[in-house]
Simulated scan of single mutants.
Amino acid sequence: MYFASDNTGPIPQAVLDALVQANTGHAPAYGADPLTTEVTQSLRDLFEAPDAAVFLVPTGTAANSLALATLCPPYATTFCSPVAHIHLDECNAPEFFSGGAKLTLVPGNDRMTPDALRATIANEGTRGVHGPMRGPVSITQVTEAGNVYSLDALNALCSVAQEFGVPVHLDGARFANACVALGCTPAEMSWKVGIDVAVFGGTKNGLMGVEAVIFFDPDLARTFELRRKRGAHLFSKHRYLAAQMAGYLRNDLWRDLATTANARCAELVDSLSGIAGIENEPTANMVFASLPRTTHQRLMAAGAQYHLWSGNLDGTNPDDLLTARFVCDWSLQSEDIARFHALLRN
C-alpha cells in the first residue's frame, strides 16, 4: 500500500532488459551511439515531428531548468502557476541555469486561466530596462495538485503566449499519465496545441532516470546542447540513458505503464469516495483527499504509506480533517487497493 510517490516504484523488466542488451561491447560516447539515434527517431515519430530536436537528460529538474534557460535570457522572466514544480520543488534551479531569470507567478490555482495569464504577462515588460522582459510560459501537465489541463485549456494558454510572442514550455514529468487521461496522442498534447518545447517524462512512470526534452522548432534549441554540457548533464555513457528510453518506447510501454497507474488511482478514488473529501479531479494517477486524523493514524499504523499535505498526526483532536496526497505508480496491484479499501472501511 505504497502511495507516497511514483518516483519510488521499481523499474519494469522490459526496461531492465533493454539496459542489459545495451551493456555489450563498446559504443560511441556523448550521444553518438546507435541507441540514441534510434530513440531520437522514435520520439520524432511518436510526436509526429520529423524535424524536432531531441535531448536526453537524467532528471526532471535538469530537463525543466535547461529547457527554460534556453528559452529565457537572464533579464527575462518565466510565467508559471504558484504551485508549479519549477517554483516549489527545484531549489531555484531554473533561476540558476538561466543566470538569474526570475519566475513570475500567475495568480490562481494549479491550472492557470487565460485571463490571469494574459494580465500577468501584460504587466511585465512595461518598465524598460528597470523590469524583467517577457519570457516563456511554463505549464505543468499533470499539475502538482493532480489535475489535468484539457486540450482546449492548453490551446487557450498557448494562444495567450502567442499574443505576446513568447514560447511555451510543458513540464511533462507525468506526460504519459495526462495523455492516457485525455485519450490523446503526444502530438495532440504538445505542438498541436502550441507547445514549443515539451518534457516527455520517464522517471515517474517507471524508468531508472531519464527524461526527453523535445524542441519542436530546432532553431530554439541551438544552445541547449551547450547548456547541457556546461551544466554537467551530458552523460558520457549516453547509451544507458537511451536504452531506458528505447525500452520505454518499444511496444508503447510508456502508455501501458501510465494506463495501469491511472487505473489503480481510479480504484483508489472509488475506495475513498463516500468516506474522504476528494479535493481534485483525479483523472490521472494522483488524488488529494481529506480524512479525520484518527483515520490517518489507523491507516499508517497498518502500513499504508503516503504524505500528509496539511496538519500532522500528533494533534489533539482526532476528528480534525487532514489532507493527504496519494500517488499511484505502475507497479501497484488491485490487491493493494483492496487491502487499503478494507482498512479504510474497517
Rank of each mutant, 00 (worst) to 15 (best):
A4V: 14
D6H: 14
P10K: 10
Q13C: 12
V15I: 15
Q21V: 12
Q21R: 13
Q21F: 12
N23W: 13
D33L: 12
T40W: 02
D45G: 12
E48D: 15
A49H: 02
V54P: 00
V57P: 00
P58L: 05
T61N: 05
A62S: 14
A63C: 05
L66W: 06
L68R: 02
A69I: 04
A69Q: 02
T70V: 08
T70L: 10
A76R: 04
A76T: 03
T78S: 09
L88W: 14
E95K: 12
F96T: 08
G99L: 11
A101E: 00
T104H: 13
V106A: 09
P114Q: 08
P114A: 12
R118V: 03
T120P: 13
G128E: 07
V129E: 09
P132L: 14
G135F: 05
G135Q: 05
T140H: 04
Q141K: 08
Q141L: 13
Q141F: 09
T143A: 07
G146T: 05
L154H: 03
L157Q: 01
C158F: 02
Q162P: 04
E163K: 11
V166E: 01
P167R: 08
V168K: 02
D171H: 11
D171K: 04
G172W: 00
R174T: 09
A176H: 03
N177R: 11
P186T: 11
M189N: 05
S190A: 15
V197Y: 03
A198E: 06
A198K: 01
G202T: 06
T203C: 10
K204A: 15
G206S: 10
L207K: 06
V210K: 00
F215H: 01
L220R: 09
R222V: 10
E225V: 10
L226C: 15
R227I: 07
R228F: 08
A232Q: 14
L234K: 05
K237T: 11
H238E: 12
A243N: 02
A243S: 07
Q244D: 05
M245Q: 07
M245L: 13
A246S: 14
Y248G: 01
L249M: 12
D252F: 09
W254K: 02
R255P: 05
R255V: 05
T260S: 15
A261V: 06
A261D: 01
R264W: 07
C265F: 12
L268S: 02
S273Q: 13
N280V: 10
N280D: 10
T283S: 13
N285F: 07
N285C: 10
V287Y: 04
P292A: 08
T294E: 13
T295M: 09
T295H: 04
H296V: 04
A301I: 08
A301V: 08
G303R: 03
Q305D: 12
Y306Q: 02
L308D: 01
L308R: 03
W309A: 11
D319R: 14
L321H: 11
A324P: 03
A324V: 08
R325F: 11
F326E: 00
V327T: 10
D329V: 03
D329W: 09
D329C: 09
S334H: 13
F340A: 00
L343M: 13
L344N: 06
L344E: 07
R345V: 11
N346H: 13
